[in-house]
Simulated assay, not measured.
Amino acid sequence: MTVFLRELRKTYEATAGTVTALDGVTVGFEQSTFTAIMGPSGSGKSTLLHCAAGLEQPTSGTVTVDGTVLGELGGNELTRFRRDRIGFVFQDFNLVSSLTAAQNVALPARLAGRRADAAAVTAVLDGVGLADRAAHRPSELSGGQQQRVAIARALFAQPAVVFADEPTGALDKATSHQILTLMRRMVDEHGRTIVLVTHDPVAAAVADRVLLLVDGRVTDEMAGADAAAVADRMTAMERSW
């Protein structure tokens, strides 16, 4: 099991009282699988992803990634582990505007004090179809190209898992299809493990399975469903929510 969440809880203190974002989630993500997480707004999707990636600390429960329990790591150890074993792709790309595509891909390694092999950077950019754009800065790239650079950066360290939070949310339909096809290929051809948060049934249908989250709990699971079936299940769930 590449990632395993056991009895994961996350609460926040708000003006109106304690808010429960995750309520005892237990779920695993196998190696070389593609999982989509869906649910109504406020259901805890992004919180689950952030806790699983070590970006937020759960209130209780455990997160195990590649055999390592994240809660047992100190601050510096967790930072190193995230950098080496966890990839993360954001909706807004999070590229450094003053750096080229190649420099953005190599940035995590450089921040770790390691030399990034130029051939390896070129290879990972080639894997996302952007070897010929390595010297271009983000402003010289389309939104889809910027997201592919972000995916290349997430893949550069060959992480155990890649978490993606609405990676196609800011892209048009055709570009979204390109990104999703790329992510599907990374699973099928390169054995990557991808966990995707999305609100789009078309995006979710690309995954091997879809987890449905309501009120911080996994309430349903679909495997091999097409976009229409996912949309119907989401509609029914939102009506009852």
Score class of each variant (00 low, 15 high):
Phe4Trp: 07
Glu7Cys: 01
Glu7Gln: 08
Leu8Gln: 07
Leu8Asn: 09
Arg9Tyr: 11
Tyr12Glu: 15
Thr15Ala: 15
Thr18Met: 10
Thr20Ser: 12
Thr20Asn: 09
Thr20Cys: 12
Thr26Ile: 13
Glu30Pro: 08
Pro40Met: 05
Ser41Tyr: 00
Gly42Leu: 14
Gly44Lys: 15
Thr47Cys: 04
His50Arg: 05
Ala52Cys: 11
Ala53Leu: 08
Leu55His: 09
Thr62Gln: 10
Val63Tyr: 12
Thr64Gln: 12
Val65Tyr: 05
Val69Tyr: 09
Leu70Trp: 11
Gly71Cys: 05
Glu72Gln: 14
Asn76Pro: 06
Leu78Gly: 02
Phe81Ile: 07
Arg82Met: 02
Ile86Tyr: 01
Phe93Met: 00
Asn94Ile: 06
Ser97His: 14
Ser97Cys: 05
Ala101Phe: 03
Ala101Lys: 03
Ala102Arg: 15
Gln103Trp: 02
Asn104Asp: 10
Val105Ala: 03
Leu111Cys: 04
Ala112Met: 00
Ala112Pro: 01
Ala112Val: 06
Arg115Trp: 04
Ala116Tyr: 06
Ala116Asn: 10
Val121Trp: 02
Thr122Glu: 15
Gly143Val: 01
Gly143Asn: 00
Ile151Ser: 04
Ala154Tyr: 13
Phe156Lys: 00
Phe156Ile: 01
Asp165Gly: 09
Pro167His: 03
Asp172Ala: 08
His177Asn: 14
Gln178Pro: 13
Ile179Phe: 04
Leu180Asn: 04
Met183His: 03
Arg185Cys: 02
Val187Thr: 04
Val187Gln: 09
Thr193Leu: 04
Asp200Phe: 02
Pro201Trp: 15
Pro201Lys: 09
Val202Glu: 15
Ala205His: 09
Leu212Lys: 04
Arg217Val: 15
Asp220Asn: 11
Asp220Cys: 06
Gly224Leu: 10
Ala227Pro: 08
Ala227Tyr: 09
Ala227Phe: 08
Ala227His: 08
Ala236Ile: 14
